[in-house]
Amino acid sequence: MTATVIFDFDGTLALGDGPLHAYAACVAAVAGVPGADDAYAAALARHEAGEGGFRDGYHAVQQTALDLGVAPDALQEGYVRSRALLAGPEAPIAPPAGLGDFLARLAEHAELVLVTNSPPIRIDEALEVLGAAPHLDRVVCSAGKPDGMPALVADALTRGPVLSVGDIYAYDLEPAARLGAATAAVGPASSAVAHLVTMAAPELPALYGDIEAWAAAASSRR
């Protein structure tokens, strides 16, 4: 029996607003809509204040762009351009404190899998920057969450218990919980869904001990 811990990327292992602001800038450059920069900045400010009902910062930019008449293909082009900047000076990222050591300990008890909707553009470089690359057993890009999540979780469940860790309940956690997997919510919205998940905290390091304990217990089941 092999336990599996599935991690989300943006907002979970990769922290910081660098990629988000790169996305807004690239969409503005592609679309060429007057006043777009100010509109995106205002939307992000509303999101950071807990207003607007946005799923995350990317959703805030996306919805604002659509409201401005930006075509979906321009949004996609802007996103792809921004991912080419990932983990560089124009889209910096940082790991949660102690991430590398945590993953090294966790890997003793579970298979570690990254599942992200991001395309495979500079993901390897980003994982090196985060100190996560040596500890991940598998990386799944362009996962199509939430619709793509159930198949991945179901496959892992055939080998043993599963814990899914992420910052967006509907994308990272609800599909896993529906199949009987454990769930860990992190990030600013974690308190709002704490009653729906196995564990929750505003920052991933606060859950290191609980996640390690879950993995140790799960791997001991035979």
Results as ranks from 00 to 15, higher is better:
Ala107His: 15
Glu108Cys: 10
Glu108Val: 07
His109Gln: 13
His109Ile: 10
Glu111Pro: 02
Glu111Arg: 14
Glu111Val: 12
Leu112Asp: 04
Leu112Val: 01
Leu114Gln: 00
Leu114Val: 02
Leu114Trp: 02
Thr116Ala: 03
Thr116Met: 03
Pro119Lys: 02
Pro119Gln: 05
Pro120Glu: 13
Pro120Ile: 12
Pro120Trp: 04
Ile121Ser: 05
Ile121Glu: 09
Ile121Cys: 06
Ile121Phe: 12
Arg122Lys: 09
Arg122Thr: 01
Arg122Ala: 05
Ile123Val: 13
Ile123Arg: 06
Asp124Gly: 12
Glu125Trp: 00
Ala126Arg: 07
Leu127Arg: 02
Glu128Arg: 14
Glu128Cys: 08
Val129Gln: 09
Val129Pro: 05
Leu130Cys: 06
Leu130Trp: 10
Gly131Val: 07
Ala132Tyr: 04
Ala132Met: 00
Ala132Lys: 00
Ala132Ile: 01
Pro134Ala: 04
Pro134Gln: 08
Leu136His: 01
Val140Gly: 04
Ser142Arg: 07
Ala143Leu: 06
Ala143Thr: 05
Gly144Lys: 00
Lys145Arg: 02
Lys145Asn: 05
Asp147Cys: 00
Asp147Trp: 01
Gly148Arg: 06
Gly148His: 08
Met149Leu: 12
Pro150Leu: 00
Ala151Lys: 14
Leu152Ile: 15
Leu152Arg: 14
Leu152Thr: 10
Leu152Ser: 05
Ala154Lys: 13
Ala156Tyr: 07
Ala156His: 09
Ala156Trp: 03
Leu157Tyr: 09
Leu157Ser: 11
Leu157Pro: 06
Thr158Ala: 14
Thr158Lys: 11
Arg159Ser: 10
Arg159Leu: 08
Gly160Tyr: 03
Gly160Asp: 08
Pro161Lys: 07
Pro161Asn: 12
Pro161Met: 12
Pro161Leu: 11
Pro161Gln: 11
Val162Gln: 11
Val162Ile: 11
Val162Arg: 07
Leu163Thr: 06
Leu163His: 10
Gly166Val: 04
Gly166Asn: 01
Asp167Phe: 02
Tyr169Thr: 10
Tyr169Leu: 13
Tyr171His: 15
Tyr171Gly: 09
Tyr171Phe: 14
Asp172Leu: 10
Leu173Gln: 04
Glu174His: 14
Pro175Lys: 00
Ala176Asn: 07
Ala177His: 13
Leu179Gly: 05
